[in-house]
Amino acid sequence: MPTDRHIVLFDLFGVIARHQRPGALAKMAARCHAPTEAFTTAYWACRPPYDAGRQSAPEYWTAVLRSLSVDADADTIEELRLADIDSWSRVDNRMVAYVQSLRQPLRAVTEVALLSNIPADHADAFLAAQPWLHTLDHVAFSGKIKAAKPSPAAFHHCAIAMRAAPADFLFVDDREENVRAAQAVGMNGHVFTARDELAAAIDTWLPTRRPTWK
Rank of each mutant, 00 (worst) to 15 (best):
R54V: 03
A30N: 12
P49D: 04
Y60E: 06
A30R: 13
R31G: 12
T62Q: 11
D51M: 09
V64H: 03
Q55A: 11
C46A: 14
A45P: 11
A63H: 10
E37P: 09
A52L: 01
A30I: 12
R31Y: 12
Y60M: 02
C46E: 13
T41G: 13
P49Q: 04
P48Y: 06
W61L: 01
T62L: 06
R66N: 13
S67V: 07
T36H: 13
C32H: 08
V64A: 00
L65E: 02
L68H: 03
S56P: 01
H33Q: 15
Q55L: 10
W44M: 14
W61T: 02
F39Q: 00
T36V: 13
P58Y: 06
Y43F: 15
P49R: 04
R54G: 06
Y50V: 09
A63S: 14
T62G: 11
A45Q: 15
A30F: 05
S56L: 08
S56T: 10
T41M: 14
V64R: 04
R47G: 11
T41E: 15
Y60N: 05
P35I: 09
H33T: 14
A38P: 10
P58Q: 06
T40L: 10
L65H: 00
A52K: 02
S67A: 12
A52M: 01
E37K: 15
S67I: 01
P35R: 11
A38G: 11
Y60K: 05
P58S: 01
Q55Y: 01
A38Q: 15
H33N: 14
A34K: 07
T62V: 06
A57T: 09
P58F: 06
T62N: 09
R66W: 04
V64K: 03
R47Q: 14
A34M: 02
W44E: 15
F39P: 05
W61A: 01
Q55M: 11
A30G: 12
L68A: 00
R66F: 07
A34P: 02
S67M: 08
P35D: 14
R54A: 12
Q55C: 03
S67N: 08
P48N: 05
E37N: 13
L65P: 04
T36K: 12
P35Y: 09
E37C: 10
A34S: 11
A57I: 04
Y43N: 09
C32I: 09
F39W: 05
A52W: 05
A57E: 05
Y50A: 07
A63E: 13
L65K: 03
A38D: 15
C32D: 07
L68T: 02
T62W: 00
C32N: 09
C32F: 07
A52T: 04
A38V: 12
V64W: 00
A63Q: 12
Q55E: 10
F39L: 05
Y50E: 06
W44K: 14
P58G: 04
T62K: 07
P48C: 08
P58D: 03
A52C: 04
A38E: 15
A57V: 01
A30W: 10
A52F: 00
